[in-house]
Design a binder for these strands. Structure first.
Length: 352
DNA sequence: AAGACGGGGGA
DNA sequence: TCCCCAGTCTT
């Protein structure tokens, strides 16, 4: 059996009994598809049932107000879906005479319907030969063929869409699409898939090369976090106070300086009056110098560091901390982040 | 190409 | 916690 035959065979034996699979009405299928976007079946099913019950036709849906739609949508999340549906229902009434479109090219033009949903509705309602590519399909294909192209890039989307369309059984596109998604969802699960019971295991590239947990590859959307580091320069007898960093943050087990992180930029004069600072260095601290803020970019953080040189501090409070004094020769042996290493280069230059 | 958009369940 | 879920729209 080829790929399509295998998954359709599997689908006949293992498919769930989902309410929206009993119809070919594009309106009802649309309802189910929008509700199920980025939503688990168990979470979305009650909503589908309520919507299908209250608005059995697109005409009834279109006659509802946006407030009513959103009220019924309440708790499901991604509320733009509800707003787009309202708009689309009205447009279907006005420009499609109340007949919900069945073909891909018409569907793709509607608000809230992207490539996945247009392929789903067109294939389920009229067997148009368009392969669906959702999260399940990405995962199944990336594993089966051992493809490590990231799925959330333009290149990846095209690659997997082309592949799915090659595999598509055009004589029964709707059933194939249902089957490939159901297979991905139940058999080729994200975590701990049961490969031993999988009918595709013999040919599965990820299985053969032991990469089930590495695929699919997804580029992590890294949001840059802004952090404000206030470093303290405290010297005694020609030595400088150093901090060994702990776990759970950047630069684990490397060495920097005593650090007071603040949520926002802060002035040195305010900082040395803070309770936390006083508990470390006492109340009689004077500021000798404050550096200009130094920006330091990490992969997912933007650090704003300032270096505050202090004098007249007490160090009898320091014993509980991971701080210690070192001379310059010892300092040079410690693993320092680039930011710190850079700072010391300039600092030593100034002090010689 | 990257970010925003929700809420819930599983590991 | 992080990841993922029958994705799409905006910038």
């Amino acid at each position: 059996m080829n790929f399509a035959e295998e998954i359709i065979e599997w689908y006949q034996r293992n498919k769930r009994d989902l309410p929206w699979r009993k119809t070919e009405d594009p309106y009802i299928i649309w309802l189910s598809e929008i509700i199920m976007q980025q939503t688990r079946v168990e979470q979305g099913t009650p909503y589908f049932n309520r919507f299908a019950e209250k608005y059995p036709t697109v005409e009834l849906f279109a006659s509802a107000s946006e407030d009513e739609i959103l009220k019924l949508w309440q708790g499901l999340g991604y509320y733009s879906r509800g707003r787009n549906m309202h708009q689309t229902a009205q447009l279907v009434m006005e420009e499609h005479a109340g007949y919900f479109p069945k073909n891909y090219d018409s569907l793709i033009k509607l608000k809230g319907i992207g490539e996945y949903t247009a392929a789903a509705i067109s294939s389920f309602s009229s067997n148009e030969a368009r392969a669906v590519v959702d999260g399940n399909v990405f995962r199944l294909l990336s594993r089966y063929f051992g493809i490590d192209t990231p799925i959330n890039t333009g290149k990846g989307k095209k690659l997997f869409t082309d592949l799915a369309n090659e595999l598509l059984d055009k004589s029964q596109a709707g059933k194939f699409n249902q089957a490939i998604m159901e297979f991905g969802s139940l058999q080729c699960k994200p975590k701990n898939p049961d490969c031993l019971s999988c009918p595709l295991q013999a040919a599965c590239e990820a299985r053969k090369t032991n990469r089930i947990n590495e695929l699919p590859v997804k580029i992590k959307s890294l949001k840059i976090r802004e952090r404000y580091f206030n470093y303290i320069i405290a010297q005694k007898d020609g030595q400088i106070l150093i901090n060994k960093r702990g776990a759970g943050d950047i630069w684990e087990n490397m060495f920097d300086l005593p650090l007071f992180e603040t949520e926002f930029p802060s002035h040195a004069h305010d900082l040395i009056r803070s309770e936390k600072f006083i508990s470390c260095f006492g109340e009689k601290v004077k500021i000798r110098s404050v550096s200009a803020p130094v920006k330091h970019i990490l992969s997912h953080q933007k650090l704003h560091a300032s270096f505050i040189e202090i004098e007249s501090f007490s160090d009898r409070f320091l014993s509980e901390r991971s701080w210690f004094y070192v001379g310059q020769d010892e300092l040079e042996k410690l693993a320092q982040p680039k930011l710190i290493f850079h700072f010391f280069e300039n600092f030593h230059k100034l002090n010689t």
